[in-house]
Amino acid sequence: MEAELTALAAAGATAFVQHMAADSWAQARDRLVSFLSRFSRHRVGEEDLIEGELETSRSELTAALRSGDEQTALDVEAEWRTRLRRTLQANPAAAAELRAVLDDLAPGGNDQRDVNVHNTISGGVYHAPVIQTGILGSFNHGTPPDRV
């Protein structure tokens, strides 16, 4: 059971850190605040504190990604992995809810098929295909590999 909770905490931390660097951050933040405050030992008034900690982590992460500071990006993920693991150890019943949150936040998890999207590209002449995407499904904290 311990290994399963540790793996779930790691998956949760990875997913939340990926969302910190994406447009989907507000939704992920709100879900994590709700989850952590529900299973917190202190509960009352905890939401603002957790949200502040998450926003601090997001600021640290985005600054680290801009400057190529891979260690700080890894530290942010490790911090939330530890926090989630401790939460799950204190209340193993929270695992089912964390899995549900992760499923909802996964690409295609909340099934928004009826959303209309309109993309406009302007500001230049493009002599090649232009590709626009949302979540790609993986996130690399480091620098991209050299191209050959």
Rank of each mutant, 00 (worst) to 15 (best):
Q27F: 04
G68L: 01
Q71S: 10
E4L: 11
P145F: 08
V33K: 06
S37G: 14
R66V: 07
G12T: 10
T87W: 01
D48Q: 13
P144M: 14
H127W: 11
N119V: 15
G142T: 11
A73F: 02
R113P: 01
H141C: 06
N91L: 06
A64H: 05
V17Q: 07
A106W: 09
W80N: 04
Q132D: 15
P92A: 05
I121P: 11
S59D: 09
Q27P: 02
E79I: 08
L32Q: 04
L102M: 15
G137T: 09
E47C: 00
A63R: 14
S122C: 08
L105S: 09
E55N: 15
V125H: 14
V125P: 05
R41Q: 10
R147N: 03
Q27E: 12
F35E: 00
A78N: 07
F139L: 09
R99H: 13
I135K: 12
E2W: 08
G12A: 09
T87G: 06
H19R: 15
L61R: 03
F16S: 10
S24P: 04
H42L: 13
A7I: 04
R38M: 02
R43K: 15
A100R: 15
A26V: 15
A90K: 11
G124K: 00
N110Q: 14
D103I: 12
A11T: 08
N110Y: 06
S59R: 11
A13D: 04
R113N: 12
Q27W: 00
S57L: 07
R113K: 14
I131G: 00
A73W: 00
V101I: 14
V117M: 03
A15Q: 10
A128E: 01
L84P: 01
